[in-house]
Design a protein around this nucleic acid. Structure first.
Lengths: 240, 240
DNA sequence: CCCTTATCTTTACATCGTAAAGATAAAATG
DNA sequence: CATTTTATCTTTACGATGTAAAGATAAGGG
């Protein structure tokens, strides 16, 4: 709060045409040559989500407010309500987009890996890489108290993310991970992999690893620390 | 927001004596028999911190506001400002208390462990145990964007926590962890231990592990999953 | 062409953080 | 002891937020 916002709330009634999103909007009939947007936006839902991502990565989670998003999109502060219900709704849809981006990044990283040894490292690297490239999004995706997982879009996207992880672990252990039942050993392997990579990522984004990184041989990056950390980690089946 | 608060903001001027904190307050001269608190509280700073912890664990992070804490302590909404500057100040001091509680829990758990094998499990168990017992506090301690680590109390308490971890790893590896320099192998061991336990804890508190726990052999608890996860994890020096 | 519906804007209100000024009591000073 | 200073707490005030409700505007279907 106390952001010393200059212009008053409703004083920004100069509407832009379609410059914000880049693509021309549907041109709601006779597109008047004037630079005034129509009363009806045409694709406000998508525009708001794009605006929200911009606001998030620019101003952080604290700056991600309904009104800020509306401002960014150039509409009235109450417009988002109609499309998302409330702030939790908007934020949850944005997190769903994040999970989809995330899943895609992991998928393409795995496909690009040739050997199975490469693949074992490619996935966690892509995980951390996404978080570093989109820290706001990653932070949002795991900020549970602000999300509504009962929303199908978010639920599905997050579920897919977990399934990808479980499958990858299964592949490394050379066994099928069945949907409904897990052995303790399997569960432990999944929990270990996920905990380690997720923990590393959050600690890294929170700056909690700076201390360690600073004391390591110079030139050591977060990525090489991650590699070293994973290298001596058991994934396969334990010898009986 | 929209919490349908009944009584208006300043309508709660009925002050209680010293029932809130439990201990009697200094009785600022001639303690009138009436149940009215003096204008000067006497130990408001501590009372506010205790109130804050209560609010946090009761209403969650979203409910932890300056005004709610003031209400809980029975003082005017602006009273906390004088003691903590702003919300970040209050929250940071509370997080410092959390780290001290946390460190103490880990310390006593280690002392109680007899064998070195027991000690290796006692620490992470105490880690997760504290988080489960004080989910609000743990969440706060790692909610970086709301904390000010430049505050000495918070900085020191968090630092002590990290030092304890590093020492424990050093002990397990049977080598001294020097203050200023680390080998990649040492750093990886510390990062692995911390990432794993911190990641496990946050995933657990966020309910992200429910899915896994539900599919494990019935009777499997979070604690046994943690044990299984740690059991096959390399901590010692790698064979050269 | 009119009426319905979806979309967006205005207005309104309770809450929040925080700044500033007033009130009160404790402490210091003479 | 009387008076002044200082620390502590309260009041008042302001801009920000989320959200509910009512009004305005356009699109579409009879």
């Amino acid at each position: 709060m106390a952001k010393t916002e200059t212009r008053t709330e409703t004083a920004r009634r100069v509407r832009r045409s379609s410059s914000a999103t880049g693509r021309p909007r549907p041109a709601p009939r006779a597109a008047s040559a004037k630079t005034e947007t129509p009363y009806h936006h045409g694709a406000l839902r998508e525009a708001l989500l794009e605006a929200a991502e911009r606001v998030l990565e620019r101003d952080g989670l604290a700056g991600l407010t309904l009104r800020a998003v509306a401002r960014e999109a150039g509409v009235s502060h109450a417009a988002p309500t109609h499309h998302f219900g409330d702030l939790t709704g908007l934020v949850s849809e944005l997190a769903a987009i994040g999970f989809r981006q995330f899943n895609e990044a992991m998928g393409s990283a795995c496909k690009a890996a040739a050997t199975s040894h490469e693949r074992a490292l490619a996935r966690p690297k892509a995980y951390v890489g996404y978080a570093q490239a989109h820290p706001g999004m990653y932070g949002l995706m795991f900020r549970t108290e602000r999300l509504d997982y009962s929303r199908p879009s978010l639920h599905e996207a997050a579920e897919a993310s977990f399934a990808g992880l479980a499958n990858a672990i299964g592949a490394m252990r050379q066994e099928q991970i069945s949907g409904d039942a897990l052995t303790l050993d399997q569960g432990a392997a999944i929990a270990r992999a996920w905990s380690m990579v997720h923990g590393f990522t959050t600690l890294l984004l929170d700056g909690r690893l700076e201390d360690i990184l600073g004391r390591l041989p110079k030139g050591t990056t977060a990525e090489s620390l991650l590699e070293a950390m994973l290298k001596s980690t058991v994934v396969g089946k334990l010898p009986a």
